[in-house]
Design a binder for these strands. Structure first.
Lengths: 224, 224
DNA sequence: CAAACCAAACTACCATACTAGTTATACTAG
DNA sequence: CTAGTATAACTAGTATGGTAGTTTGGTTTG
């Protein structure tokens, strides 16, 4: 797909985006040792922007930098996953409740377009794009509630959670249920059926828990 | 007090901590323009670690870096304050509820020590230390609930909120009420009176809202 | 054979020179 | 005197060389 060419902005941002994608999509496996120099050569840039990208990724806990020694791609920490999932559940239930009271036309348009696209991607098995649409679905809810910043922060807290979700999506494939939940939730929101919408959201966010053990068994070296 | 000398670790971390403190304690006012070179000279270090500290602070939205142009200390964004406060309220109510069910002896010891210290600092008007103790009080709750990572993340989301709190503490001074609430909350937690503890927490976190307008009027150029 | 040590080959960290883009200033044309 | 422009003095961004600490692998020693 050559997503490499499309990334704009500074060299640092380019390095950051590229590395982040490679880690999230497991093109670089958890536990792999990498170095500034190695990556810099690979990307044909100097060490400085790569180093800065490393630091940002370390902040997000996608990398573990050991001073004067080396840098490794972090393993998925299941305790962090659960903590992140817990918080996300609590927050997003509040968000849905808020959204029920204020879901303007522009958001309805975006949401319907999003859901339509989800079905297209599902029919074509485009997992990568489907993941992005799933993210966007939830983001729209946060924006409609005037809590865009909270979404951004949750994304950071939930990086390990998201890595697990992406891993699950790529291996498993019963998105139908997920998309169905999205549809129901949207209908309940525009009908302002607060309690039911909140309940669906709770179920929705607890789906991942179930398959956790299966994935851990299949890819033990990805986890910690 | 010379907090400068005590900071250990790498040069980057030193620069970061120092700058962060200066910004949080308003030794550098919001809106001030600073530059990597200027700060590097001031701290007698090279531009590299200062630059890296800048980037970290920009991530936290304490600095606004305008590429090829300049860097300014960000103003306190009151919309961010309110969003952060909202999230913190929702999360911390859940945390208190959790803590009621699991508050071990070691945490009780830390908590009682913390509260005792709060009273000492209040009697001696040590605002700075009192702020730190306030932070620690809440952090202990998160740790007792096994959600230390969440605390760390909330701290990031709430940097603007915290700047406001610190500003309030240093100018105003009715900590008695705050400390009183801390005491009550602790008692309710060890007695496992969940509903009441949650209620106190809600009141506690809504205190800041009240004085917001007063501060905005007094220091208009600090806000946006 | 095993353990201890020593040296070479890494690593991230820091300093510094250079580049490219922005801003302010001074000067010129109208 | 004003408006527009060229230029000089900034800025953050990037490249690169050198430093100090860590790891590794081979050698020596008990």
């Amino acid at each position: 797909m050559s997503m490499e060419q499309k990334i704009k902005g500074s060299t640092r941002d380019y390095s950051y985006q590229l590395l982040r994608n490679k880690i999230m999509h497991l093109e670089i496996e958890p536990g792999t040792k990498i170095s500034e120099k190695e990556i810099a050569n690979e990307l044909n840039v100097s060490r400085t922007p790569v180093r800065e990208a490393f630091m940002k990724l370390a902040e997000e806990e996608l990398l573990d930098i050991i001073p004067q020694s080396g840098t490794i791609v972090s393993r998925i920490n299941l305790r962090h996953v659960e903590e992140g999932r817990f918080i996300r559940e609590k927050i997003e239930k509040e968000i849905v409740a808020l959204a029920c009271g204020q879901f303007g036309d522009d958001f309805r348009f975006r949401m319907e377009a999003n859901i339509a696209m989800q079905e297209v991607c599902a029919s074509q098995n485009n997992v990568c794009k489907l993941y992005e649409l799933d993210e966007e679905f939830h983001q729209i809810l946060f924006e409609a509630s005037g809590k865009q910043r909270t979404w951004k922060m949750l994304q950071q807290l939930n990086i390990h959670f998201n890595r697990l979700r992406l891993l699950r999506l790529s291996k498993d494939s019963h998105w139908e249920h997920i998309i169905q939940q999205h549809k129901e939730m949207y209908q309940l929101i525009i009908r302002q059926e607060k309690e039911q919408a909140v309940q669906i959201m709770e179920n929705h966010l607890r789906l991942v828990v179930i398959e956790q053990d299966m994935l851990k068994e299949k890819y033990p070296h990805y986890f910690i």
